[in-house]
Structures are given as structure tokens and as C-alpha cells.
Design a protein around this nucleic acid. Structure first.
Lengths: 239, 239
DNA sequence: CGAAGCATTGAAGTGCGTCAACAATCGTGG
DNA sequence: CCACGATTGTTGACGCACTTCAATGCTTCG
């Protein structure tokens, strides 16, 4: 079940068998979570982080008026709140989109692992910095890209990340987001997200059906999005 | 000259005199940089990070079409690319807005410091996670706030951050951004940034004059922005 | 003093939001 | 297996926040 996480790491780093075992040992416990549950609330004091073993989560910030902005979508293998290891409380909520399996990683275990193996410490620091890079791309999307470019970009990014985690088969991947949630990622209204989705379909770029996405024309989609995966740091890292 | 950085740290952590000296020892060299220089380019291989001792920098991402989105504004005391310590190359450029004094911090020194003092390692990890929190607030701004709310929010944030660094006097602070650069932070056109600025002035909230900002009505400004500094982690951290 | 950048203004256009209704799908219990 | 209410998706009409284009004055600084 931790394999998605290991795949994500192996994409970027050489790991010894011993290190992989250490990493597996981080998970003290695992939990099943129903869809649409808020798992961590902004401000909660934390002494564990959540490794998403299977399913979909989002981090989101809510406005007083009730509007919500999703700051990042998480897929199997992602640490949802590794930054909580240093921040000790979050500035956002974490909620489930689908049924999820979540690995509980006590901060004490992280600390002791990083003491024994500082290389892994730096590796996990890298992961939080990669999340920040994803944030920056999101800032670029929201600040400068049109609705259709943003949406195309999101599908491009998710496809790559899911592929790395071993969760995409051919040109398809499971996709539990409703159009409301999609609009909350993209800074749009539901109505406009719906129309934008139709436009992508009309252009024969993606099909977004019942809980599934099919990329029809990947090159075309990437062209619309001006997608460049550089910010995902997919190549082997020196460290 | 490193005092702004130490102020920023002392706001959040207790530092021993020995630790402060270690931190001062990080800076191998310092450089003066003219305004409007690109100091680091996306993709450059890095083995040093830049500690902004004095002045203003931005990180920005440029689109093929030439539009630019500023992802974060940096003031005295900020590490502009500490995340480069783990990423080894950036997904964005770093450019100067004003004349700057920049401390060069070799990654080798960071590594050796963190080996000797893992607490400081975690502290700097915290700083990069704080930057990510600022990114998330920016995502919320761009996704859900109107032009005037966004602009008000930016001024609120900068005021707090400058105060912490000891760079705000009373209700004023130096402000080298042109309206174009302001618009590039906020995901607006220059024209609309200009009109929004006028609206803030008309409402008697801020005055933005020749290279200086004066906060006229801080409470009013924070109300427009719905500003809550929680995401800046201003209180003392446990670690 | 002149050129180049920066700030400001007006008029017109548009991408996306808002409101409101309806259709399709889903989950649940009877 | 059907009935139902609730959630999700879709559509149309209309409005507005922000953009675009273009012109003009205002600084700043060689």
C-alpha cells in the first residue's frame, strides 16, 4: 500500500533496500476515511503527518463567506501535510474527496529517522519544496491563464503525477472530483467550470466522465495548457 | 546587515548567542545588485542560496507570451531561494526590484551547519514551509478575492513582514514596486491595478506615493482584505 | 532638454459570474 | 425493484469586473 509513495520517491532518488524499509516503518497505523470528511482543520495542533496511501485528498482554505479555494490536490503516495512536521499546525484544512486509506506517521518517528539518516531528512525536505513548486505553478495558472488553459494544465499535471504513482493506465485515470470541486481548484464558478469542461470535450482533448478522465489528445492538451513539467522535478536528483 | 534575518528568526524561535553566530557565519560573501537584474534564472544549477540582507527581490515565472507572474515578494531578511538547497535548480527566476545587498550562502555551509546543529536544520526547513504558506494565501487571493481585496491583502501582509524585519517605521514603509510590478503580483493588468490603487486611496486606506507606502487606516485595510496573519506563523514555535 | 519609462484617463469589449430553472444521476429505504 | 429526495450536471439570459486599446500627462535621469 505504501508502494505509490515509494514509486514517487524512486522517480527522483536512488533508495537502498534498507532505506525503503525505514520509510515503510514510518507508518504507525492506517485508517480508512469516507469521502468528504475533513481530516485536519486549520490551527489543529499536530504531532503526526498523513501519508495518503490510497485515494484522493485536497488541501483547501475557506473564506469567511463560505467560498473555498483548493490549494492542492493529493493523490496516492503524497504526503498531505508533511509540512506539519515543522509548522506544527496548518494554515488550511485537509479533506477527503474519495474513500481514502491514510497512513499515520508520528512526527517522533520522522525525527528519529532523520537523526539516523539525514539524507532522508533532506529528501523529505525536498518533497515539501516540491509541493511549494506546485503551488507556484498554481499561482501562475490563477494569475495569468484563462479558464480553459488552467483546466487543461490541471489535467496535464494530474496525469503526470498519477503516472509516477502508478495510478494511470494508458490514457485513463480515476477522477473523483465533482465539477464543484474542480471549480474550487481553478478559481472558477461551477457554471463556468462546466462550460470550460464542455469546450475541452468539444475540442476532443479530454473526456471527463463518471469518476474517470480519459486524455484523448495529450499533445493538444499540453499545447493548450503550455504545459512544461519542469516544475515537477521528475528527473533523478543529486542530493 | 544580517539583523533583519535574525529579527525574522527571533520572532519565531529562541536562538542562543552561539546559534546566532553560526547563522552569521553562513554568509560567505556579499554582493550589491542594481535594480531590475535577474539574479537567478529558472533551471540554473545552484550550489549557493541567496540571503537578502537589504532591499527587495521577487520570484517570478514568465509565460512564453512574455506575461509575468510574481509568485512572492521578498524583503530584507528573507532567504530568496533557500528551497534551492534541496531542489538544486529553481522553477522560477529571482530578480531585484531595488538596489539590493545579497548574502551568498554556500550549500556546503548549510549542510555542515545542519550536521552540527539539526535544530537549525529544522528551523530552516520551517522557513521554506512558511514560504509555501505564503504561496497558499496567494492562491486564495488569486482564486477567490477581488482586485481590491487582493491589493489590500498584499499591503497588509507586507506591512507585517516588514515590521517583523524592522523595516517599517510607524505607518510607513519604503515600497519600490512600480504599478506594473504590483499588477504582476496580483494577476491584474497595469491599468486595473492603477484604478484599484486609486480606489484604495479614495477610501482613505493607504497612500502609495513615490517609492513609499503609508497605511492610513490599518483596521479598514485589514477589513477589506479579510486579513488574518495566522498563515505567517508569527508566534513562538515549539520545535 | 529630450527620451524613456511610468502613471492616468476614457471608451469599448469580453470572459467569467450570477441567477434561475431543469435534467440526469445517485444513494437509500421501503 | 421501484420511489424518493438529494446531489450533480447542464442550459439560457443577463450583468459586471476586469481587459484591451489608445491617447496624454508626469517623472526621472542621462
Amino acid at each position: 500500500m505504501i508502494s505509490a509513495h515509494l514509486k514517487k520517491l524512486r522517480q527522483r532518488f536512488e533508495l537502498s533496500a534498507a532505506e525503503e524499509q525505514e520509510i515503510e516503518g514510518l507508518v504507525a497505523d492506517s485508517r480508512q476515511v469516507d469521502p468528504d470528511q475533513t481530516i485536519v482543520r486549520a490551527g489543529d495542533k499536530l504531532d503526526v503527518s498523513l501519508l495518503l496511501l490510497d485515494g484522493w485528498l485536497v488541501r483547501h482554505k475557506d473564506m469567511p463567506g463560505g467560498e473555498r479555494q483548493i490549494t492542492e490536490v493529493h493523490v496516492s503516495g503524497d504526503f498531505a501535510d508533511l509540512h506539519g512536521y515543522t509548522l506544527k499546525k496548518l494554515d488550511h484544512d485537509v479533506s477527503s474527496l474519495s474513500e481514502c486509506t491514510i497512513g499515520i506517521v508520528p512526527h517522533a518517528r520522522l525525527r528519529s529517522l532523520f537523526e539516523r539518516n539525514p539524507r532522508l531528512g533532506k529528501l523529505y525536505w525536498f518533497l515539501t519544496n516540491m509541493d511549494a513548486a506546485i503551488h507556484r505553478e498554481q499561482i501562475l495558472s490563477l494569475g495569468r491563464r484563462s479558464a480553459i488553459e488552467r483546466m487543461a494544465h490541471l489535467f496535464c499535471e494530474l496525469y503526470v503525477r498519477l503516472e509516477v504513482a502508478g495510478c494511470a493506465t494508458g490514457d485513463r485515470f480515476a477522477f473523483p472530483l465533482t465539477q464543484r470541486e474542480l471549480s474550487e481548484c481553478l478559481g472558477l464558478t461551477v457554471v463556468h467550470a462546466n462550460r470550460t469542461l464542455q469546450e475541452l470535450r468539444r475540442r476532443q482533448l479530454v473526456e471527463v466522465g463518471s469518476r474517470e478522465v480519459r486524455i484523448i489528445d495529450r499533445a493538444g492538451l499540453e499545447a493548450v495548457a503550455e504545459f512544461d513539467p519542469e516544475y515537477l522535478y521528475l528527473d533523478k536528483q543529486p542530493i
